Simulated scan of single mutants.
Amino acid sequence: MHVGVVAQQGDERAVGLAADIAAALDVPVSLDPETASSLGRAGVAPSAMADYGLVVSIGGDGTFLYTARRVGSAPLLGVNLGEVGFLNVVAPEAAVETVTETVEAIRAGEASYRELTRVETSGAGVELPAALNEVAVLGPQRGHGNGVDVEVRVDGETYSRTHADGVIVATPTGSSAYNLSEGGPLVHPDAAGLIVTEMCADGSMPPLVVAPDAAVRVAVSGAETAYAVADGRTRATVDPPAAVTVCASADPVRVTGPELDFFAALEKLK
């Protein structure tokens, strides 16, 4: 068994935890290049960790999203150095013990795994990585008098035609992220479905939860340009009139280790 560790860049605490985890395990451990360099070791790119038995992400949710985009189907465990930690379940003071126990469970064939839905895009020449939180289709600029004309269809049926800053298609995991900030609903991580939320729309329809295998088509027009953005980090240009279809990816994120206490995490949002 091989374990990978990806730590938040520029964070000394994350580097220290990575070193402690590597020292505690009796299996081969590889660190991401920047963390390894800080410790005087040779590193391994996260994209080369796809066949590892476990990859540990140390940092905030952004580090977890970064890692998830690169390690394919390798099981993930997140150590939380951020504020809320919907993706990183393990507290830093419990990191070494929890990772050690998780490795032992995997080696004994006793580990449990959970799959988190990702969404992917097609159409309009858009090429984006699968997103764990959401895909947003946005106008060129936010605010009154800007935005873009949108038509939202679900499995070919028209749900909405309006002018909006954009449209978010989120996963249950991402319901507490960008979706929530734009007035979308919280969805328990054990629930299935995709969430469609319009952003500052004229005469907007309420947010809609659709089937997990639904295809959400967002057509944009009335602007010189628009964008499709995956997890707030990777952006592709869309040239209106055009349509982007968002649906669940066939490749979910696999996580292991302790389960999220969803309602305890919600308390941190207050």
Rank of each mutant, 00 (worst) to 15 (best):
residue 86 F to R: 05
residue 141 Q to K: 15
residue 92 P to H: 11
residue 78 G to N: 12
residue 119 V to Y: 07
residue 141 Q to M: 09
residue 123 G to R: 00
residue 120 E to G: 09
residue 110 E to T: 00
residue 104 E to D: 15
residue 74 A to M: 07
residue 110 E to W: 04
residue 61 D to C: 03
residue 74 A to G: 02
residue 71 V to I: 13
residue 71 V to A: 02
residue 116 L to G: 01
residue 79 V to E: 11
residue 139 G to T: 10
residue 101 E to P: 11
residue 105 A to K: 05
residue 72 G to V: 03
residue 118 R to C: 13
residue 68 A to G: 02
residue 113 Y to M: 04
residue 93 E to G: 06
residue 57 S to E: 03
residue 90 V to F: 09
residue 105 A to Q: 09
residue 89 V to H: 07
residue 136 A to K: 01
residue 66 Y to G: 06
residue 127 E to D: 14
residue 137 V to W: 03
residue 101 E to W: 00
residue 137 V to R: 04
residue 61 D to I: 04
residue 58 I to C: 01
residue 90 V to H: 13
residue 91 A to F: 11
residue 115 E to Y: 08
residue 87 L to A: 00
residue 60 G to L: 05
residue 88 N to T: 06
residue 66 Y to S: 10
residue 84 V to Y: 09
residue 61 D to T: 04
residue 115 E to W: 13
residue 99 V to F: 07
residue 92 P to C: 12
residue 100 T to P: 11
residue 115 E to K: 14
residue 73 S to R: 13
residue 92 P to S: 08
residue 141 Q to H: 04
residue 135 V to Q: 04
residue 139 G to V: 04
residue 142 R to S: 13
residue 102 T to R: 10
residue 124 A to H: 06
residue 129 P to Q: 08
residue 108 A to L: 04
residue 135 V to I: 14
residue 117 T to A: 15
residue 98 T to I: 07
residue 86 F to A: 01
residue 109 G to A: 00
residue 140 P to F: 01
residue 56 V to Q: 14
residue 126 V to I: 08
residue 115 E to C: 05
residue 96 V to S: 14
residue 129 P to V: 13
residue 118 R to V: 09
residue 122 S to R: 03
residue 134 E to L: 07
residue 118 R to S: 11
residue 123 G to H: 03
residue 60 G to D: 07
residue 105 A to W: 00
residue 69 R to D: 15
residue 61 D to K: 05
residue 106 I to W: 02
residue 53 G to V: 01
residue 53 G to Q: 06
residue 128 L to C: 04
residue 75 P to G: 01
residue 76 L to C: 00
residue 116 L to W: 13
residue 115 E to L: 15
residue 118 R to L: 07
residue 90 V to Q: 15
residue 80 N to F: 15
residue 87 L to R: 08
residue 127 E to C: 00
residue 125 G to N: 11
residue 121 T to H: 00
residue 112 S to T: 13
residue 61 D to W: 07
residue 86 F to N: 10
residue 97 E to V: 13
residue 69 R to S: 15
residue 73 S to A: 15
residue 78 G to L: 01
residue 68 A to Q: 08
residue 121 T to E: 11
residue 129 P to S: 05
residue 113 Y to D: 01
residue 56 V to W: 10
residue 142 R to P: 07
residue 69 R to M: 11
